[in-house]
């Protein structure tokens, strides 16, 4: 990812479901100010929900913080990029998805499992979403980068 992307400051949120609406509002407000078309916003929302709910549900055993930032404008490649950071247990959602998800291959209702439905959407909606485990914002972090094509 180019280093010249113009990101907002990191915004911190307690990583609990009750704060999900504020997280979504932060990102969608940013997307609107970056002129992401209205008709694309719902797709962005879906991808963001799937990614961030995963962090809320699994990153921390108890409480913790989730950090968000986004690009202020759509970049030269036509992407609005959202980043999610947490300091929870090391967890690459894209690695786990291959093992968990089988609904797309399920032959019958009995075979379809309720889990693993979300991450495939993240992979489809964002352009090459990536995960890195690195020292960021003061501690070892899970760092998701989610470029959204307009």
């Amino acid at each position: 990812m180019p280093e010249t992307l113009d990101f907002t400051e990191w915004q911190a949120f307690p990583a609990v479901m009750a704060n999900y609406p504020q997280m979504l509002e932060f990102v969608t407000a940013g997307a609107e100010s970056a002129d992401v078309p209205i008709k694309r916003l719902m797709k962005l929302e879906l991808g963001f929900e799937e990614a961030v709910v995963n962090v809320i549900n699994y990153a921390y055993e108890d409480t913790g913080t989730l950090y968000l930032r986004y690009t202020k404008t759509v970049d030269d490649t036509g992407h609005f990029t959202v980043e999610i950071v947490d300091h929870g247990i090391a967890f690459n959602p894209f690695k786990l998805e291959e093992n968990m998800h089988n609904t797309q291959n399920a032959k019958s209702l009995d075979d379809a499992l309720p889990g693993g439905l979300g991450i495939p959407f993240v992979k489809k909606i964002f352009t090459e979403p990536s995960y890195k485990r690195e020292n960021l914002l003061g501690a070892e972090a899970n760092h998701l980068v989610l470029p959204f094509k307009i």
């Binding site: 709910v53 379809a112 309720p114 439905l117 959407f121």
Partner: peptide, 19 residues
């Protein structure tokens, strides 16, 4: 207007229960 995987889980659960 909007359905996410959380909603899909509801539908799957309901469908299985009715089945």
């Amino acid at each position: 207007s909007y359905l996410s995987s959380a909603g899909l889980r509801c539908l799957l659960k309901l469908s299985k229960a009715l089945s």
